[in-house]
Nucleic acid binder design. Structure first.
Lengths: 147, 147
DNA sequence: ATGATTTGGATTGATATCAACCTAAAAAGC
DNA sequence: GCTTTTTAGGTTGATATCAATCCAAATCAT
């Protein structure tokens, strides 16, 4: 004889109310949508903003370091770069010192687009911090502890 | 004459250190990977776990209500259901009262798989809460405020 | 009632995500 | 030196994500 409801409903409620993976995914989707909407006028998604911004350094970073910074898989980064390279916002160059590595170079067009996005980010981000009862610092600490 | 570096490096550091969208995305990726790894032995991803668990109710929910609960687009839910329906873990039935709506029904196989996943979730989630300096409550509050 | 609007989903197209597997280059061991 | 191992990325295949668009059913307005 097979048990009909092997998972009690209370467990479902417990997961729904406490699961941090679920809560973080929900917040991630909501925030991404919000920034996607805000950045749409300049033709950029939230993920592309984070990626382009991470390339704005004195020394162009390697793919590995960017993937680690964004906590994403290296192959995800490869895919994410394709539309940016196609739009000539990013250029990929083989590292002179280590020919396995690729340097990710923000082009002038990429810089210009990023520049247009910065005030949008500032406005949106300030609004989000205001919505948090205790500001963003505690949240950032917790999120860093998870990474 | 075109300005060379329209976005100051300090802005990049500010975004990297404070952007909640970025921090939440990073944590979301890291947590998803962690639960994906833990749940792999039972053949389920973290997202599929959340989805299947949300179907374990006395009354099978509609797609709209599940999409809202998970804060995901309705079309994302349509896509996410396909592999689950194919594996016969979920069955989709037209609502009797409103023929536009679909009721998502957890099958016996779905229940069995979910049942196998619950102890894994409990173990993993307890470990994550332990890693948070102030426990998960503050984090959950903040994440809810963002959604 | 009946025509207009709203609502629940599906489809298509683009990007995002990662596992599994592959290649090439650098580093380590001998 | 030369072989083995490690490391940086790429490719493929599957699922995830959402915008834009469409369809059908329910609701609203008159």
């Amino acid at each position: 004889m097979v048990t009909r409801k092997p998972v009690p409903y209370e467990t479902t409620l417990l997961v729904r109310d406490t699961c941090l993976c679920l809560h973080v995914q929900r917040a991630a989707r909501t925030l991404a949508r919000r920034f996607d909407d805000a950045l749409r006028p300049v033709g950029m998604t939230s993920g592309q903003f984070s990626l382009l911004m991470s390339l704005n350094r004195p020394e162009p970073p390697t793919m590995k370091s960017v993937a680690e910074l964004l906590a994403m898989d290296r192959t995800t980064l490869t895919a994410a770069l394709k539309p940016l390279v196609r739009r000539k916002l990013v250029r990929i160059a083989i590292d002179k010192e280590d020919r396995r590595s690729r340097r990710l170079i923000l082009t002038d067009e990429g810089e210009a687009l990023l520049s247009a996005a910065v005030p949008i980010w500032k406005r949106e981000h300030a609004a989000i911090e205001r919505a948090l009862p205790r500001g963003g610092d505690g949240l950032r600490k917790d999120l860093l502890a998870l990474t």
